[in-house]
Amino acid sequence: MRIGYYPGCSLLGSSREFDESTRAVLKALDVELVEVADWNCCGASSAHILNHELSIALPARILALAEQAGLTEILAPCAACSNRLLSAQQELEKHPEMLAGIEKAIEMPYKGTVKIVNILEVLDRLKDLIAAKTVEPFAKKVASYYGCLLVRPPRVVNFDRPEDPQSMDRMLRAVGATPVEWPFKTECCGAAFSVTRTDIVAKLSGKLVQDAVKRGADAIVVACPMCHSNLDLRRAEINEYLQQEYAIPAMFITQVVGLALGLDPKALGLHRHMVPVEFAETAGVQS
């Protein structure tokens, strides 16, 4: 399988381990990732608040570049990126009259032929192969955390059910993990307040961490860099707010799958976490 790849900014910065683990896992599964050359910012949380046309032009340029590279599909692991790409594509489908202006702005033709997929969709396609190649079943209880942008708004992403989604749970089961029954799968983590209002993040993400532990989870598994930042990078603030030392690691789904496939934890970027992924040794994974 050959698939286009749009890492976006997070995967080059704060969530390098998501990029590393995605590349490592997909390589192990013989998927060729073709990074879109000269890609730009997707606009993320700021563009669509400030300027509607800009918020479409930015993703449209990425999609147009992918078209030019002859790609039919593009994987955007970051939930915000895939959400923005999908929004722009649908907006242009719904309002063809905007197309001329957008094409002028991005200085290239846009056809809208590239399909945007998230990491769970790609892994789901490779489910059988993953099951076959699993050498170290991830025999842990896990809380699968989807966050907001992966499944919402349903009309845009059209993926899984918006309340109580199941796709990550299925993947985790496939690699030997046991997802706990968890009502907070799509509750807010505090998102971009990570930078400006860490107190709010501590409160919201704290609720998630606390409840996941209470329900017996060994790890919280995510598929969004923002979620991961809040649950991992902001753990100090969370623990301070909750007056407790929560050590439950937050892991990317690709890291979990990578461990199950027997990949080197370093290649999966596990050492980059603020909250150490400590059970890795006890589970017998080589380091």
């Binding site: 309340e163 029954e181 009502p183 907070f184 409840d211 209470k214």
Partner: peptide, 11 residues
């Protein structure tokens, strides 16, 4: 907006 179960109660 939401109902979930916690410690035998419905929240």
């Amino acid at each position: 907006s939401k109902i979930y179960e916690e410690d035998g109660k419905l929240i």
